[in-house]
Nucleic acid binder design. Structure first.
Length: 593
DNA sequence: CTAGGGTTAG
């Protein structure tokens, strides 16, 4: 007699199967808690010295930006092979640790392991900017020497990297492409997109026409070339001629019309799209938001959510950036709510965009509280917060934050100092600002860019040290641009120095003939100083140059409606009431004095 | 390795 027992695998079998499943997908896993659990099981099963398993763990940890753990796993292996080295190099590159990637590469070479055809594309990905060109050339010659050009992946990736070095890389890319016996569609497309990237549209077009078999990417790339050149007529012509139009083609057109400000055309394209992904929705909403069309942007955002589309970080960052630019707090808060709902709240880029949006829209408390609760801050987070405090005249707090940043061992970059100098300017801490300017190069090896000189000119100029500012402009190693002279001109206005203003304007018109604002500034300074001849002469120069430029406007978001104002503006429907309030405020201010 | 949206400054 037998007893019926339900047929069921023992618990340990299914557990083991689950473990194996987890192991198989480990390298794509982004859930840190889960990875750590699997890691614990791996250690228990003594699998950590398995080269395959170790590589998967390194990948998984690098996806979660846990490079410390990735390196720990790597170091458990006594004799790593090329594949494991490649994985660690790729992990560093993914976390934008270019120098560590190259250090790992050198370590691999000194351990006697040869690089393979996977190593080079990883290393190349770490190269970007014109300073990398010599490095790319070195890698290129190694590739030639060891015959890795045979793998089409490698030369394709080299071409792409040459173009990421900017216009200086064009020569190398062209030469390599011309020497390639075997070219695939990707080789051609990489060339075309590279030429578009460096602004050589005609050359890109020539290659496109020459290309034997074009695919959708080729067409979309050259379409984007015309869009980037701002030529929507040419883009439209091409769009009509395309053999097939996919979501990317339509999105490129929508984005192009948004960029040239033709929102109606953009909307028409958007409405006509046969299939929409989250990207065109993002483009259209950001397009509205950038132009300050809050109602349209919000309506479309609601429609997108109703349509059940899942927003991603791209959506959030793009829309928030537009909100920050135009001061659309209402839409920004809506996006914040969606972020909390979709669990994007631990994404550093998303949080940075949120902080910036709140700061730019004037909600510093909100910005500070998100900043304080961030699990993983990066340099950009600090920069945004410092800048946000600085422009809202919380100079001391901005500088305190800068000190805290250094205490917490974050390395300030060039942008950090823009915020720091801005804070010093607003607070009138001239000498402290100059100290920070020196600190920048001395302690952090940052070469001052023209923007930094602009900040220092502003710092000195607003503080009334006009002569020093003038001297700095003449002695700085970069050629002064219109922004620099314009900054000094503004300082001349504040301090009513019509003599220097005339001198500055002289240099300014050489650089920027078409800005009427400069002339009116001089005219204002001259009249304020009682120099009526100077004022008249400035007005005459302005008229004779035939310049007309719309004045800069301020805007404010009231119940999702954007109101714009210029100086002495009477066009608003509530204009009379507004000026009454202004008059009252002015009287109140006089009293406080 | 190639196509559309994407955080900080000016």
């Amino acid at each position: 007699m037998s007893i019926a027992v339900p047929v069921r695998a023992p618990r340990w079998v299914s557990r083991r199967r689950i473990f194996e499943q987890h192991l198989a997908d480990l390298h794509k896993c982004k859930n840190l808690v889960h990875i750590k659990q699997v890691f614990a099981q791996i250690l228990k099963s003594d699998l950590h010295s398995d080269l395959q398993v170790a590589a998967k763990l390194v990948s998984a940890f690098s996806l979660c930006h846990q490079m410390g753990l990735a390196i720990k796993v790597f170091d458990l292996i006594e004799e790593p092979n090329t594949h494991l080295y490649n994985t660690l190099i790729g992990a560093h590159v993914r976390n934008s640790q270019a120098s560590q990637a190259f250090a790992t590469f050198l370590r691999m070479q000194s351990s006697g392991l040869p690089a393979d055809n996977f190593t080079y594309p990883f290393l190349l990905k770490a190269c970007s900017g014109k300073s990398c060109l010599p490095l790319v050339q070195t890698i290129h010659s190694q590739v030639e020497k060891f015959g890795f050009r045979a793998d089409i992946f490698v030369p394709n990736s080299l071409i792409d990297t040459y173009y990421r070095c900017g216009p200086l890389g064009v020569f190398g890319a062209r030469k390599l492409f011309s020497m390639m016996v075997v070219r695939d569609t990707v080789s051609w497309n990489t060339m075309i997109s590279g030429l578009v990237k460096v602004g050589e549209l005609n050359e890109a077009r020539r290659l496109f026409d020459e290309m034997p078999v074009k695919d959708a990417i080729s067409w979309n790339t050259i379409l984007d070339g015309h869009v980037k050149a701002g030529d929507m007529n040419a883009a439209f012509e091409l769009f009509e001629k395309m053999p097939e139009r996919n979501v990317v083609s339509w999105s490129t057109m929508v984005s192009g019309y948004c960029k040239v400000g033709e929102l109606d055309m953009a909307r028409m394209m958007f409405d006509n799209m046969p299939v929409k992904s989250v990207v065109p929705w993002t483009i259209m909403i950001s397009g509205y938001a950038q132009k300050g069309l809050a109602k349209e942007a919000i309506m479309l955002y609601d429609q997108m959510e109703e349509a059940g589309l899942i927003i991603d970080h791209g959506t959030v960052i793009s829309i928030l950036a537009a909100c920050a630019e135009s001061g659309l707090l209402g839409l920004g808060m809506k996006v914040h709510t969606s972020v909390q709902r979709t669990g994007l709240t631990c994404n550093t880029l998303v949080l940075n965009a949120l902080i910036d949006m709140y700061a730019k829209c004037g909600s510093l408390d909100k910005a500070l509280s998100i900043f304080g609760g961030m699990p993983e801050k990066d340099v950009v987070s600090w920069n945004i917060m410092i800048q946000g405090l600085a422009v809202h005249r919380h100079a001391e707090k901005a500088l305190e934050l800068y000190d805290r940043m250094k205490q917490e061992k974050f390395e300030p970059d060039g942008v950090t100092f823009i915020g720091v100098l801005c804070a010093c300017t607003h607070a009138g801490f001239i000498d402290q600002g100059l100290d920070h300017f020196l600190e920048m190069g001395r302690d952090f090896g940052i070469v001052p860019q023209i923007e930094h000189y602009g900040c220092v000119v502003d710092l000195l100029g607003r503080g009334g040290r006009l002569k020093e500012a003038f001297g700095l402009i003449q002695s700085m190693p970069v050629e002064p641009n219109a922004v620099i002279w314009g900054t000094l001109l503004g300082a001349c206005r504040v301090h009513n120095d019509s003599e220097m203003a005339a001198e500055v304007l002289d240099r300014l018109v050489k650089l920027e003939k078409s800005d009427s604002g400069n002339f009116s500034t001089l005219s204002n300074i001259s009249s304020a100083a009682g120099d009526w001849d100077g004022a008249a002469s400035a007005r005459f120069q302005m008229r004779s140059s035939g310049i007309k430029k719309p004045p800069g406007a301020s805007s404010i978001d009231v119940d999702d409606e954007i109101h714009e104002f210029t100086a002495f503006d009477t066009s608003h429907t509530e204009s009379d009431g507004i000026y009454q309030v202004v008059a009252t405020l002015r009287m109140d201010l006089e009293e406080v004095r």
